[in-house]
């Protein structure tokens, strides 16, 4: 544990963690992400809230097509417009809304499948692990509505009381114009 806490992968450090230590952490992180995805797909939104840190930032900036020369302007910045820019209170509102019995965009409920892949641990700092992953959120709805949202995300997992809490989720969607009626599903 002591070693891992000091490690920044890719940097030259005096005590490189062993392959088995890295594999163990990778396994732990992946299992957490899969379990989290399973809760969302099982519509256990309230249990999902239990995985969030109190200071979570859940953010999806707006992406737009730019020329290569201006690709640094591809995403909106923090503080400007976004599709999601939520704190814990707002995520709790989203969950209460899903439970309300009058959130018509999710009642009848959608059928969602959260795929997480290409999981890479980018950084370990103290008790926080920064994880990059590709996501594919598939939503099937009513008779024949289908949505597919694919992108990259950066999560921060924080070790709390022997397990992880999600302290950050930044979602970088590949679509510019969102090809969906709404985004009423939690990513």
């Amino acid at each position: 544990m002591g070693m891992l806490e000091q490690v920044r992968l890719g940097a030259v450090v005096s005590q490189e963690p062993s392959l088995s230590e890295r594999a163990l952490l990778q396994y732990e992180v992946e299992q957490f992400l899969y379990a989290e995805a399973a809760l969302l797909d099982a519509r256990k939104h309230r249990e999902w809230l239990g995985l969030l840190a109190d200071d979570i930032h859940y953010w999806m900036p707006i992406r737009r097509t730019t020329t290569l020369a201006e690709v640094d302007r591809e995403f909106t910045k923090l503080g400007d417009m976004a599709y999601f820019d939520d704190d814990r209170a707002l995520l709790e509102i989203r969950v209460r809304k899903l439970e309300a019995g009058s959130a018509w965009s999710e009642d009848p409920p959608s059928r969602s499948r959260h795929f997480v892949s290409n999981v890479r641990i980018l950084d370990i700092a103290g008790d926080e692990i920064t994880v990059e992953a590709c996501f594919h959120l598939y939503r099937s709805r009513l008779e024949r509505d289908v949505d597919s949202w694919i992108g990259r995300r950066v999560d921060v997992l924080r070790r709390t009381d022997g397990s992880f809490r999600l302290a950050k989720r930044h979602l970088f969607l590949d679509q510019t114009v969102i090809l969906s009626t709404n985004m009423s599903t939690i990513f």
């Binding site: 999806m60 503080g79 989203r94 959130a103 965009s105 969102i178 709404n182």
Partner: peptide, 26 residues
């Protein structure tokens, strides 16, 4: 900040109000 917060959370595809409009219209 407050104005942008409102704009980001009321309307738009993930907006707490707007989410429920599209299906009625379609």
């Amino acid at each position: 900040r407050n104005m942008i917060w409102q704009a980001n959370h009321v309307f738009g595809p993930a907006g707490i109000l707007e989410q429920d409009d599209g299906e009625n219209w379609s």
